[in-house]
């Protein structure tokens, strides 16, 4: 719509008059209308018309006492319907779950899941990320690679490791690097604890999980 304020000041003021009458104009708009009315008294008749309309709309209407009980009764009915629809929805869902159609849907979903699980690598390189063992496992056998700061430290570290993990098999890779195999399943919390202990041994440069199974 065209901005009547600049193109036609009469129309602009005419537009504002109803709200001038109901006293909802901003101060600046009100002042604008007041100023216009001084120079254009013919608009006073328009205001009178609007006030007449307003007065008639203010006519006494017999407004009944609000019926709270009736409203709350309607509310109860609505909520009952809602509850009913919810239980109906659950029933429909259950009926569908046990229907042959659901079985036909479940078969491809199960197959897809099986494929995804088979394709997930069974060995995961963890690179020292203690918190992620192989996905979904609660226990795992694992291999830990230890590197000592020097070859001199190696024998001391091996002795300490034997004390720490008597069941472990230790295989030397290089003079300062060896691998611990834990064949029994170890809880993740124990693994983390073990790894921290190994890392804190004097002479150990690094200790990290290589594989879990």
């Amino acid at each position: 719509m065209i901005d009547t304020k600049h193109t036609n000041p009469d129309s602009h003021i005419m537009e504002l008059l109803p709200w001038y009458v109901n006293d909802s104009l901003s101060e600046s708009e009100k002042a604008e209308v007041d100023a216009y009315l001084v120079s254009h008294p013919e608009y006073l008749q328009e205001i009178e018309l609007l006030r007449t309309i307003q007065n008639t709309t203010e006519e006494n209407i017999d407004i009944p006492v609000p019926n709270r009980d009736r409203l709350m009764q309607k509310l109860d009915e609505i909520e009952q319907i809602d509850e009913h629809s919810f239980s109906q929805y659950i029933n429909q869902l259950l009926a569908w779950l046990f229907s042959p159609r659901a079985a036909w849907t479940a078969i491809p979903v199960a197959l897809a899941l099986a494929v995804v699980m088979l394709w997930t690598p069974s060995q995961t390189s963890l690179n020292g990320d203690f918190h992620t063992l192989s996905s979904g496992d609660t226990t795992a056998t694992l291999t830990i690679s230890i590197t000592t700061s020097s070859t001199d430290d190696a024998s001391t570290v091996i002795d300490q490791m034997h004390k720490l993990v008597p069941a472990a098999k230790i295989k030397t890779k290089y003079d300062n690097q060896f691998v611990i195999f834990l064949s029994d399943k170890v809880e993740p919390e124990e693994t983390i604890k073990l790894l921290k202990n190994l890392q804190s041994l004097p002479g150990v440069k690094s200790a990290e999980i290589v594989t879990t199974r």
Partner: peptide, 28 residues
Amino acid sequence: MQGYSYPEIAKIIDCPVNTVKTRMFHAR
């Protein structure tokens, strides 16, 4: 006539303020 301002009416009836003014103009 119930005292609503035109921006409020525009919100209530979900139309631009200018439409409110135009409708009022024609109604009057």
